[in-house]
């Protein structure tokens, strides 16, 4: 198998993050928010938005290397190699690409601010939060996942929460459908960020002028979790002019993200095509609600294209600030 799969699964199991990011880095967005560690509702990021700029940097490296080559294998085994020679992988990742870091890191901050504004109270596991393991499930490492989820559940239980609010539909999917099969008594209520906003959408600040937007439905959100009308309701309630792409809701076209790590060029082509399809709606302001869609569509935007790709969180946060 391509080594990249083993490296990613090992990183998840050993470091609680597909790219072996440190807990302190993943939770840095929460500084100054004073979120409690315990509460009824757990705010769960899974480190997914925070990871995006690093994935992109790796993919950029992969695109220029033959996947079978030694160089590639070495790159993917970077953590092990660097550990031995005394460099921190964070340093290496940072040196490869760090300019998008602020943007993606702040998505979690913005999500928390929007929920606060709507009057929600929640806790956060901070440094201790672990990745859900969704990629172990995706890539077929189910036996490893069975061991791994125990540790995730331990951290979740420490919070004392009964409800988990997921920013990423991938996390929501595994918590909802996979965890109950692997962990006895995993009876948390699983919500998505979109659910919570939808319930109190009347409290959201209205847009100053009717902007036109188009929704890219995430596959997981629209098909597995059945959430698509909610996104439209939210946007309509703040006064946005929602345009529709030819393929939407449960017929949405995938952003190409899931095969980004193994087939980066093809993934890119699929992302480009989806951006084109979305623009056929008549709006070039694309909103999505999934970290991987966000990153894949951003990458699929042609150079010089005036289209804007944003996460729903980023879009709603502008109303909070105003």
């Amino acid at each position: 198998m391509p080594m990249v799969l083993d490296v990613i699964s090992e990183n998840i199991i050993k470091h609680g993050s597909p790219l072996a990011l440190k807990g302190s880095e993943v939770s840095s967005w929460a500084k100054g928010l004073d979120l409690p560690a315990k509460g009824e509702v757990l705010f769960y990021t899974g480190g997914e938005y925070q990871m995006l700029p690093f994935i992109d940097s790796l993919v950029k490296t992969i695109t220029h290397l033959d996947q079978g080559s030694k160089v590639f294998s070495m790159m993917m085994g970077a953590r092990n190699i660097l550990n031995k020679t005394g460099f921190s992988p964070e340093k290496m990742y940072a040196s490869v690409l760090a300019k998008d870091k602020d943007r993606y890191n702040s998505v979690c901050f913005k999500a928390a601010k929007v929920l606060k504004e709507l009057g929600y109270e929640f806790c956060y596991s901070g440094n201790e939060e672990l990745y859900s393991g969704a990629l172990l499930y995706e890539l077929g490492y189910l036996q490893d996942m069975e061991d791994y989820v125990k540790r995730v559940v331990e951290v979740i239980k420490k919070s004392g929460a009964k409800t988990i609010v997921c920013l990423s539909p991938h996390a929501a999917e595994v918590f909802k459908f996979v965890y109950p099969k692997m962990v006895e008594g995993f009876d948390f209520e699983i919500r998505t960020y979109v659910d919570l906003v939808w319930e109190r959408r009347d409290k959201l600040a209205k847009l100053q002028s009717a902007e036109s937007v188009v929704i890219h439905d995430s596959c997981r959100l629209a098909r597995e979790l059945g959430i698509h009308q909610e996104l439209r309701d939210i946007l309509v309630s703040i006064g946005a002019d929602v345009k529709e792409a030819p393929m939407n809701r449960e017929w949405t076209s995938c952003c190409g993200g899931p095969i980004k790590i193994l087939f980066p060029e093809l993934s890119h082509v699929i992302g480009e095509r989806r951006v084109t399809e979305l623009k056929e709606s008549g709006s070039a302001h694309i909103l999505t609600s999934c970290p991987y869609c966000l990153s894949a569509l951003e990458a699929g935007r042609a150079k010089g294209d005036s289209a804007v790709v944003e996460d729903l969180i980023e879009f709603l946060y502008r109303g909070v600030k105003a």
Partner: peptide, 24 residues
């Protein structure tokens, strides 16, 4: 591994074959 597991095939399939689950 080149399947996206996006699930749109299941929407189309008259037999609702759950291909993404089998791929997993």
């Amino acid at each position: 591994y080149s399947c996206l597991r996006c699930g749109r095939c299941v929407e189309r399939c008259p037999m609702s074959i759950n291909v993404p689950a089998m791929i997993g």
